[in-house]
């Protein structure tokens, strides 16, 4: 009877020790991993406010946000109509222009080609939008991929107009 009991008590002590030890090792390892996450000074720069009052229709500016370029384009009526007229079936990555530019006059998107990350050139390409020289991806006036190896449209970041002239990105 006592022989039966012995292993149980012994196992409990060892099992408890291992379990408590494992918790400690986990708690000790976490800071070593978390320290590589963005630190608080980087996170403080996670949003940027941009004054767009000087941007004329048809023109665009490029700003740096989280280390990447963001294209802010003030589109002409022609460019907007062109974007809206496109049939979704013709798109490699179907997405409505209305969903990409809530305020149709302003297109705010990450200027990073979704193929391998180069910065596309403005006013180039077969679709009146952007053209990426690295591997030949063509984007339209809504920044959507139309031809070439890129799989997705240029990404729209989180943004809002905090006043009529100031866009807060991120």
């Amino acid at each position: 009877m006592s022989e039966e009991k012995k292993p149980k008590r012994r196992d409990f002590l060892y099992t408890a020790s291992y379990a408590v030890g494992a918790v400690g090792i986990g708690a000790a390892v976490w800071p070593l991993i978390d320290q590589m996450n963005p630190d608080s000074s980087v996170k403080a720069l996670a949003s940027t406010e941009v004054d767009v009052s000087l941007v004329e229709p048809g023109k665009s500016i490029t700003v740096l946000w989280r280390g990447k370029p963001v294209f802010i384009k003030r589109r002409t009526q022609e460019e907007i109509s062109e974007a809206r007229a496109v049939n979704l079936d013709d798109l490699i990555d179907p997405e409505k222009d209305e969903d990409r530019a809530k305020n149709p006059e302003w297109l705010v998107m990450l200027g990073v080609c979704t193929h391998l990350g180069c910065v596309p050139l403005e006013d180039k390409g077969d679709y009146n939008g952007w053209f990426c020289p690295c591997h030949g991806s063509h984007y339209d006036t809504s920044g959507r991929i139309r031809k070439g190896p890129a799989p997705e449209n240029m990404q729209i970041p989180k943004y809002e107009f905090v006043s009529s002239n100031i866009i807060k990105i991120g």
Binding site: P31, L32, D34, Q35, N37, D39, S40, S41, V42
Partner: peptide, 13 residues
């Protein structure tokens, strides 16, 4: 000081 103040758990390390 950046490590002590901004880096996650930097002060601890």
């Amino acid at each position: 000081e950046h490590i002590m103040r901004d880096v996650n758990y930097g002060w601890l390390i």
